[in-house]
Design a protein around this nucleic acid. Structure first.
Lengths: 152, 152
DNA sequence: CTGTATCCGAGATGATACTG
DNA sequence: CAGTATCATCTCGGATACAG
């Protein structure tokens, strides 16, 4: 008789288990947090000291209001930033890194450091790969690396 | 007369500029790469040595075939892994970390290390925040931290 | 000033079926 | 064995309008 579960079913179960695992995995949680497009920007901006919402909004001009608020809320929830409301008219809200949030800064620097040291190699590999992809294998014979990092 | 561009328009332009910036920013590229759900798993698995596709597929049982292939292709494109095809019947394809890819491992360890040292604080903050959110402010008076890290 | 609420389109991801 | 192709879904993020 056939196995009780198909390969697809087993994979589905594995996924459930893995998802549950992810919910606890510190590394994944950290990666999910810092890899967020706006988090790195916000943390960087706040590394200069406490700032009001409007100032952050101006500094991170490319971030929509929705995303900025959402990012700051998440960071607050995780205990990485504080949100201080001063009741006045108009309201004044100031954001600041907590000690925990400040601890994140060196790590970000480490990542940045590695990136600056090695990402050019990645860029080069990427360009080479794309060049090879773009044409038939026979075409790529004598060819110097153009070292073009970013197309377009 | 009103300004030539509205605030919304200005923000849109800022976004375009920022997107262009992101395309070059090494840090962001690195974050985008390593934060990928499956990349960390794949790199980790390959850190044990070269492996065939089928073996990877079994080890990363939670990853769909499509995603595994896509992940490996991206890593190959970035020069982080090699893909070696041995013409035979059936075909044999082996993946391995390049030296560049191996250089990524210590960085991942650093991230993991930070995560293991600090993410429990984040979890605690998160739980506290969620507890406060879940009820009216008046309710939270005398209450010990339950230290429940993961709900559900 | 500092947000919240709603709608909507684009891209990511999984399931499934098919191929050299 | 090692993929590729296609379709359905689903979440994210932006635009916009409204509110305390």
């Amino acid at each position: 008789m056939p196995p009780t579960r198909t390969a697809a079913q087993r994979r589905a179960e594995e996924r459930v288990a893995y998802d549950a695992f992810l919910a606890q995995c510190p590394t994944r949680q950290l990666l999910d947090r810092i890899a967020d497009k706006w988090v790195s920007l916000a943390v960087n901006a706040l590394a200069d000291g406490p700032q009001r919402y409007s100032r952050l909004s101006r500094r991170l001009a490319s971030v929509s209001q929705k995303m900025l608020t959402q990012t700051l809320r998440n960071l607050e929830r995780d205990g990485l930033v504080t949100r201080t409301v001063t009741p006045a008219v108009p309201v004044r809200v100031e954001y600041a890194l907590t000690p925990l949030g400040q601890g994140l800064v060196p790590l970000m620097r480490a990542i940045k450091s590695w990136a600056e040291e090695h990402m050019d190699q990645v860029q080069h590999a990427r360009a080479a790969y794309d060049r090879a992809e773009g044409r038939s294998a026979a075409d790529r014979a004598g060819e110097g690396a153009t070292a073009r990092t970013i197309p377009g």
